[in-house]
Amino acid sequence: MGASEALKPAPRIAVSGLGKIFPGVTPVTALDNIQLEIGQNEFVTLVGASGCGKSTLLRIIGGLEYHSSGTLAASGRPIEGPGADRAMVFQHYSLYPWLTVRENIRFSRRLKAHRQQLTESDVERASGRADSLLELMGLSAMAQAWPSQLSGGMQQRVAIARALMSRPEVLLMDEPFGALDAQTREVMHDLILHVFKLEKPTIVFVTHDVEEAIYLGQRVVLMAPRPGRIDTIYDVPFGSDRRQDLKHSREFVELKREIVERIRQTAGMRTDTDLLARLSGGE
């Protein structure tokens, strides 16, 4: 390894030869020999047919599940469990319904205050941080509301703000917009891109929506099932300034078609093809 290599900062996330086997009567290989490096301030999306292990991989990076083999590290430190450097945003049910929007966002601060490591200036800075996150997410008017009073889109904005509160190095997002309607989802896409520019976190984003994966990601990691593995990594050539019309451009549509087609191939969707043939043949 040369001197220049040694000077290069460790990648935010480094996954090498990672495997995950769910034990059982017939053990299932959820992930097989995963090789993936994610750089600082990179936005990577994971897509693939169901059962490809994209969520499992994300949860392993988050430290919420253990791997069976291989190594994995965050900023050079081996990952041995969940930590505040890797905050996670879930699809739903993760907000604390007994806390107001503001209190939810400040939850990581509550933890610190509880440990009595809090100084006066910390309190000040923290409330400033919470306020600017409320502002950024368009939630200022709802600061004193309870989560159950918010729409699904607003709830997810609270969840994102709460995850950002302690300035994590990595933001892990597990189909965060999967339960939202199409219009709300578009708003959330532009919002998360804005947050990405402003806060400069590293984002790993799992989705089953190819359009979402391309629109948000700088790289799209396509995973294949049985066993779960990385099939292809696509570089998305659209730069950092993205607008909704991008989705209608030829390049975008073609990349989307290519990825959708590949997912179909990796999934070996024989059943669906058979079904379609029967449906069209059976007048």
Binding site: S94, L111, L172
Partner: peptide
């Protein structure tokens, strides 16, 4: 998800 969210906030 409530528990895991807290875990990834360092609880």
């Amino acid at each position: 998800a409530q528990i895991e969210a807290a875990q990834t906030m360092g609880a």
